[in-house]
C-alpha cells in the first residue's frame, strides 16, 4: 500500500515537472478555461434575468448543480486523464500500451499516473467558485448529515465519471472509431446533469436515470441538500443511491478494464 502511494506520488511529480516546461501554454489554457466558463455562466445568468427561473429552480439552485458537477468533473479529469478515451486510444494504436504491461506495476496505477493535466485547474477553480457562490446565496440549513453527504456526493461523481472514462478507454481496445460516441456519454452526461432533470423530455430523463444512472449523482443529491420535493416520487432513500451509482459504475468499469486488457493480450495491436 505504501509502495503504491509512493509510486503514484512520484509518477504525478514527474508529470508536474514535465508540464512546467510548457508554462506559458499552461497558463494560457487555464485562463482560457476560466474565461469560457465565466462567459457560459454569464449567459446562464442572462437567461435567469430574463425568465427568473429554470423549471422552478432559482439561479442559485441551478448554480449549485452546475458548480458541483464542474468541480467533480474537473477533479476527475485531473486524476483519470490517463484513461481519457482519445489519448488512451492513441496509446493503444501506437503500441505504447505494451510498455505499460512490461512494467511490474498495476496498469491501472500506471495510467492514473500517466497524466495529470494541471491546466484542468481552470475548470476546477471555476466549479469550486460557482459552488461556493451558490452555497452562499442559498442559505441552506446544514445538518451534520448534509455536511457529511456533500463530500460523499463529490467523490461519488468523481468515481462515476472516472468509471465512464475507463469504460471509454477500454472500448478502444476493440475500436477507436467509437471515441466520439463514448464522449457523448461522458461529456454529454456531465453537461446534462448540470441542470435539473425535470426540464428534460421523459425519454432522455429516464435514460439518464435508469440506463446510465447519472441522475442519482447530482439531481437527487441536490433535491436532498436543498430540501426540495422529488417530482417523480422516488423513495425517500434515493439519495443513498449516489455512492452506489458512483462507485458501482467505477467497479464495473474496472472489471471491464481487466477484461479489456485480457482481450488486448490476445490480439495485440
Amino acid at each position: 500500500m505504501w509502495f503504491t502511494v509512493n509510486i503514484y506520488r512520484r509518477l504525478i511529480a514527474v508529470q508536474l515537472k514535465a508540464q512546467l516546461q510548457y508554462r506559458a501554454a499552461f497558463l494560457l489554457e487555464i485562463a482560457a478555461a476560466a474565461i469560457t466558463l465565466f462567459m457560459f455562466f454569464g449567459a446562464l445568468a442572462l437567461v435567469f434575468h430574463r425568465f427568473g427561473q429554470l423549471g422552478g429552480w432559482s439561479l442559485a439552485e441551478v448554480a449549485f448543480l452546475w458548480g458541483l458537477v464542474e468541480l467533480a468533473f474537473g477533479l476527475m479529469d485531473l486524476t483519470f486523464s490517463g484513461f481519457d478515451p482519445g489519448d488512451f486510444g492513441q496509446r493503444v494504436r501506437k503500441g505504447s500500451f505494451d510498455q505499460i504491461l512490461l512494467r511490474p506495476l498495476s496498469p491501472t496505477l500506471q495510467l492514473l499516473g500517466a497524466d495529470f493535466p494541471v491546466r484542468r485547474l481552470g475548470r476546477i477553480i471555476q466549479g469550486g467558485v460557482i459552488l461556493w457562490i451558490a452555497l452562499a446565496l442559498l442559505d441552506l440549513t446544514w445538518t451534520p448529515l448534509k455536511l457529511a453527504y456533500l463530500p460523499l456526493v463529490l467523490v461519488s461523481q468523481i468515481g462515476f465519471f472516472g468509471g465512464l472514462f475507463i469504460i471509454g478507454a477500454t472500448i478502444t481496445f476493440w475500436t477507436v472509431e467509437s471515441i466520439e460516441a463514448i464522449n457523448i456519454f461522458t461529456y454529454g452526461g456531465s453537461e446534462l446533469i448540470a441542470y435539473p432533470m425535470h426540464i428534460y423530455p421523459a425519454g432522455l430523463r429516464r435514460f439518464f436515470t435508469y440506463i446510465i444512472p447519472a441522475a442519482f449523482l447530482n439531481y437527487y443529491p441536490a433535491l436532498f441538500l436543498l430540501d426540495k420535493p422529488d417530482p417523480f416520487h422516488l423513495p425517500a432513500w434515493t439519495p443513498c443511491l449516489t455512492p452506489v451509482a458512483g462507485f458501482g459504475l467505477l467497479g464495473l468499469a474496472l472489471l471491464f478494464w481487466r477484461f479489456g486488457i485480457r482481450y488486448y493480450q490476445s490480439t495485440g495491436t
Partner: peptide, 16 residues
C-alpha cells in the same frame, strides 16, 4: 507482473 520484474525488454521502435 511478477515475471516482468525479472526481465528486461527493449522494443526497437518504442521507448520505455
Amino acid at each position: 507482473r511478477r515475471y516482468v520484474a525479472r526481465i528486461g525488454a527493449v522494443f526497437g521502435q518504442r521507448t520505455t
